[in-house]
């Protein structure tokens, strides 16, 4: 195994282009335990953390640019990001302990393509985009198109994610993320649920969306949420119907972390709670 730490995007692209066995990493929080579990490390490991663009975190009128290798802790510490995307920051801040927070990156959390990745539902519900780079240049895709299944992304050989983009949120719009885990920390989501809600001056819903994690091979965008909620004031009945939609949208498995029935049920519970939380936040912005 060879460790390399390129300092430019071009250099990293060249390394990937010239070696089919090369793999990029940032936090290594998944990579190193896999190596411990006996899985072979790739011949060439490309550390992205010395490339300034990959560590970037900035906002302008156009929107947010988040380097794929920037640590979760840096995102969580950014007060403006916290106020504009509280749900996304909640999700990112749930990725492991403080130790993990200082290493784990959005790029790694998403590109490892675990169905339970905490940042997945929030990034999808907020319609983030991934900027992908290779020697062929840059291309930008909707975040929902990045993950294809457990451990599988749409990245072509030689490609990696350089950064993520998010629009600035409109007024009276907010997001939220909740997950269910047996422990308060150091755990993997049994179910994760992200919501994005927009309200009018009267607090009535003008738009809403829910995306679930850990209930299917990829994140699940629950259909029909906006139809149920737009025009409502998030009353119990409407939320209960949303919960039912979420439970139905799941395609969960039984595993050591939960049963199918439990996951379906929890998806509904979290949907109600996360929509309520996002609605409160959106209303507070009035």
């Amino acid at each position: 195994m060879m460790y390399t730490a390129p300092v430019t995007v071009d250099e990293a692209c060249q390394l990937l282009a010239s070696n089919s066995a090369a793999k990029v990493f940032a936090g290594a929080t998944d990579l190193l335990p896999q190596a411990q579990a006996g899985r072979r490390l790739e011949d060439v490991l490309v550390d992205l953390k010395r490339i300034p663009r990959l560590m970037n975190l900035e906002v302008d009128d156009q929107g947010w640019t988040i380097g794929a290798a920037a640590s979760a802790a840096r995102l969580a510490e950014h007060s403006q990001l916290r106020s504009e995307y509280p749900g996304l920051v909640e999700a990112v801040a749930l990725i492991g302990s403080d130790q993990i927070q200082n290493r784990a990156s959005l790029g790694g959390n998403l590109c490892n393509a675990s169905p339970a990745a905490d940042s997945g539902p929030s990034m999808v519900v907020n319609e983030a985009r991934a900027v992908i780079v290779s020697t062929a240049g840059f291309r930008t895709i909707p975040i929902a198109d990045l993950v294809r299944g457990p451990g599988e992304t749409s990245l072509e050989p030689g490609e990696f994610v350089a950064e993520f983009q998010l629009d600035r949120p409109a007024a009276r719009r907010a997001d939220a993320y909740l997950r269910f885990t047996p422990r308060t920390e150091m755990d993997i989501a049994v179910v994760g649920a992200a919501a994005r809600v927009a309200v009018d001056d009267a607090g009535r819903c003008t738009d809403a969306a829910v995306v679930l994690g850990a209930v299917a091979p990829t994140t699940v965008r629950v259909g029909g949420i906006a139809e149920e909620l737009v025009g409502s004031t998030f009353d119990e009945e409407a939320l209960a119907r949303c919960a039912a939609l979420s439970s139905e949208a799941c395609r969960p498995i039984d595993d050591k972390r939960g049963t199918k029935e439990f996951r379906r049920h929890i998806a509904g519970v979290l949907t109600t709670r996360v929509l309520r939380l996002a609605a409160e936040r959106a209303s507070e912005q009035r």
Partner: peptide, 24 residues
């Protein structure tokens, strides 16, 4: 201990064998 049908322990790590952490 969670065993699969072959008798392999499925949760043989501190991540999935959930001992209490301080915040619990």
């Amino acid at each position: 201990y969670v065993y699969d049908e072959t008798g392999r322990m499925e949760n043989s790590s501190f991540l999935d064998y959930r001992m209490p952490v301080a915040s619990d």
